[in-house]
Computed example of a mutant assay.
Amino acid sequence: MQLHNKLSKEEAIKKLHAENFTRKTLSFYRYVILEDPQSFRDELFIEWDKLACLGRIYVAREGINAQMSVPEHHLEAFMRALSSRAELKDMPIKWAVEDDGKSFFKLIIKLRPKIVADGLDDGSFDVTNVGNHLSALEFHESLDQEDTVVIDMRNHYESEVGRFENAICPDVDTFREEIQMVVDDYSDKKDSKVLLYCTGGVRCEKASAYLKHHGFNDVNQLHGGIIEYARQIKQLGVQSKFIGKNFVFDERLGESIDGQVISKCHQCGAACDTHTNCANNDCHLLFIQCEACKEQYHGCCTDECKEIIALPEEERIQLRSKFHNTYSKSQIYRQRIRPKLNHS
């Protein structure tokens, strides 16, 4: 019985583009204790593979975090299958704002220690004592209230292309770094009304409980995250207070919320919010690149990477270990990409 997708990336992409039906991109999460995460994971793979679902799903003892692409003609069956499981019954679903049906090309379900890497000892605080869940409209109206602190619980590369007006956007690479930084750096805001937001809401669940544990008295979180905010605000005909693009962790790498471009190409400084991964697979850095620079640098983040991809494979193999041992992704960004952006 097949429990993993065995297609190569190239084969999976070719198969996806050959489909003659439409897909819907969705996401969901739930903190729920799973007694046997491995069996739960395997059962989901068999079930969803039969429905031709694609996506990236993390399963842990503490629950599930899923971003998926489901064939439109299988949506009803998919939703029935979700509800048939006690752990997933009545699951709130977030639907993509911009959706070309090509968000994922494989079904990948991984077992993880946690559904979001936060670095926290869950036994040291009450993870169920979360902040107030605000609807899109409630969050929207709270943004203008006095003595309100709005904190973006995402990474710097996410907030760089889109964020709520007047939000605090910590300059961090990971959620693990940010959650402790917020507690330490904003301890003077414990009596203020704190508004937290992230992509779909899952990071704010843990963050709000951690802030409350550390004495923040009025912690609130955007229910359903930016994805649900964008959907509801559009339905209500209200002008969005989220500006720019919502970064998403799939092949799209982002979906525009209000049409504004608030970020710059990391290489020339031109207005741009298109993320890409460096064409040098030994680097694969995520950065913002305009079409002109994409052509000039051959899809690479620096001249160094452009030179590397032009080398024969034998020489690239020799350079590989040196490259990996010398630079981390964050070091590459901070030492080689950011200076270019600041200079521009």
Rank of each mutant, 00 (worst) to 15 (best):
A271Q: 14
D273Y: 07
T274Y: 10
H275C: 13
H275Q: 11
T276F: 01
N277L: 12
C278S: 11
C278L: 06
A279F: 01
A279S: 11
N281P: 02
N281V: 05
D282S: 07
C283A: 09
L285D: 01
L285Y: 01
L285Q: 00
L286T: 05
L286V: 08
I288C: 01
I288L: 12
Q289L: 13
C290Y: 05
E291H: 15
A292H: 13
C293D: 15
C293L: 07
C293Y: 12
C293W: 07
K294Q: 14
K294M: 02
K294V: 11
E295P: 11
E295D: 14
Y297E: 06
Y297N: 14
Y297M: 15
H298E: 10
H298Q: 13
H298I: 02
G299A: 04
C300Y: 11
C300T: 13
C300S: 10
C301G: 13
D303F: 08
E304N: 10
K306H: 00
K306D: 05
E307K: 12
I308W: 09
A310T: 05
A310H: 15
A310E: 14
A310C: 11
L311A: 11
L311Q: 15
E313R: 13
E314H: 10
R316W: 03
R316C: 09
Q318V: 14
R320F: 07
R320W: 03
R320N: 07
S321V: 09
K322E: 06
K322N: 05
F323M: 01
